[in-house]
């Protein structure tokens, strides 16, 4: 059974060198054309499509032995898919991992941007399910590609405005479309729109990988990222009327936790590292205990 014997070996960071080069070239073009989705020959990864294969391929193409990797899902390091992806890189790249936002050189994320401000030299890698911001208006790739080419974003504004006319609100609360460097309309991945302002002029490099849809795109550091809005309906973010129950933070994104079957709720920071650091620094919320 000679076929069986050959299965065990894989390259550093799983991908073969030719694949890494292909992804690396795509990343460079993505940086040179901020917000434009570069098609790339996404590979089959040993984890399911839709579970971060795009982000994993981007991370695998850039990561090296000197890096410290942080992986979060829903803002938390301990969610199962984050644990699984972090374990994958520990295994195939033997790379140092951390849960501290500040210590990480690469942060791979699904659905959140960390609360702590990012710094120069850090790379934020987003896992993206549907990279095309116009997809929910037009399912055809051939059509949306043309709309981007012609900078024809009127339809998007119409849709957002219809929401306002009907509901008094823009009914998009996450994956809220942005315009990058005044040109491309981009899907910021399904982060809550609470996080959108963090993308604007971030000192970190932001890379986006969509494995199933085979697209890579980027926002270079210090690049303008503007959430689409209207003069009479400016972009606003969600505010919570309660502080984090554990650390008392009033300016972070909170998860709602159901405590009992009688309507009991509490709100806690979605960014677990941020919350823990605050508690270690002595902040205590209404239901927390001093660290």
């Amino acid at each position: 059974m000679s076929a069986i014997e050959g299965i065990a070996r894989t390259n550093f960071a799983y991908l073969d060198e030719q694949t890494k080069r292909m992804i690396r070239r795509a990343i460079l073009k993505a940086i040179a054309i901020p917000g434009y989705q570069v098609p790339f020959a996404s590979r089959e990864m040993p984890m399911p499509y839709g579970w971060g294969t795009g982000g994993v391929q981007v991370t695998a193409a850039i990561i090296g032995p000197e890096d410290r990797l942080k992986v979060i899902d829903q803002g938390a390091d301990d969610t199962t898919n984050a644990v699984s992806i972090r374990a994958f890189f520990e295994k195939v790249a033997n790379v140092a991992v951390t849960t501290h936002t500040r210590d990480a050189t690469i942060i791979q994320t699904r659905h959140r941007i960390p609360e702590a401000p990012l710094s120069e030299g850090q790379v934020l890698v987003y896992q993206v399910p549907i990279p095309e911001p116009l997809r929910f208006l037009e399912p055809r790739e051939t059509e949306t590609r043309m709309m981007h080419a012609l900078e024809e974003y009127g339809l998007m504004h119409v849709k957002l405005y219809e929401d306002i006319a009907r509901n008094g609100h823009i009914a998009t609360t996450y994956a809220y479309p942005v315009q990058v460097a005044g040109r491309y309309v981009m899907d910021p991945s399904p982060i809550p729109k609470f996080d959108n302002p963090k993308m604007d002029r971030s000192p970190a490099l932001q890379l986006f990988g969509a494995g199933r849809e085979k697209r890579i795109y980027a926002v270079p550091p210090f690049t303008e990222v503007k959430s689409l809005d209207f003069e009479d309906h400016p972009f606003t973010i969600q505010r919570f009327d309660k502080p984090c129950a554990l650390c008392g933070s009033t300016h972070s994104y909170l998860d709602e936790v159901v405590l009992d079957d009688r309507g009991g709720r509490m709100f806690v920071c979605s960014d677990t590292d941020f919350c823990e650091e605050r508690r270690e620094a002595g902040h205590v919320g209404p239901l927390g205990v001093p660290a």
């Binding site: 960071a13 460079l28 032995p65």
Partner: peptide, 19 residues
């Protein structure tokens, strides 16, 4: 060391392209 050298070189190029 083709794997490590290429990775380090790429990070340098990527950072230079991003900045």
């Amino acid at each position: 060391d083709p794997v490590t050298n290429a990775q380090a070189a790429f990070r340098g190029i990527m950072d230079a392209m991003a900045r």
